[in-house]
Nucleic acid binder design. Sequence first.
DNA 1: GCGACAG
DNA 2: ATCTTGTCGC
Length: 205
Amino acid sequence: MRWVAGADVATSRFSTWAWAGVVVLRYPDLQVVEEQYGSAELTFPYIPGLLAFREIPLLLDLFARLRHRPDLLLVDGQGVAHPRGLGLASHLGLLLEIPTIGCAKSRLCGYHATPGRKRGSSVSLRETGRTAGRAIGYVLRTKNGVRPVYVSVGHRISLRSAVRWTLACCRGYRLPEPTRQAHLLVNRLRRDAEGSPRCRIRAIG
DNA sequence: GCGACAG
DNA sequence: ATCTTGTCGC
């Protein structure tokens, strides 16, 4: 394992504009070695279960410019823990042919117990419906006392490895570094473009 | 019909 | 996702 990437998209509250970013970090020190980013108009609305159609176009453009070839990609969204078994992380991994992990901040589907409150504690996320009971992911506590994250297989990785790598990429924060850095990047871009909310009010008033 | 619902 | 300042807790 050498290059671990993270991807995220930030949206505007005023328009359909969005800022996307992909960061590549060196493992295991997790320092950012490359960033690719850009903004564009979103052409698809946010519909639970169809997030990939909204974010993938932007992210694919960024990966096309990437100088490093990631060994692993962590995505801010679900992998197979999806109603159709094909969340953003899985869809993206499939198109890029890169191993991916779905690392979402909240649940899309499935049910689960409450994991222990210590870092590393986890419980399985189980499918509902006819095939109820099958594990489709893990609800993992990445830091003591904070809300857990939803880890699921994205593409070309086992659930066990997905959980291990997610934990191995955490550095004291709730979100693993790849995803966290990507998140910081896109929000920085959005703020630079729109200005802070307070500034905006002062400009009007 | 009703409630749930990644970002 | 985005809004939004200070504040309670480890």
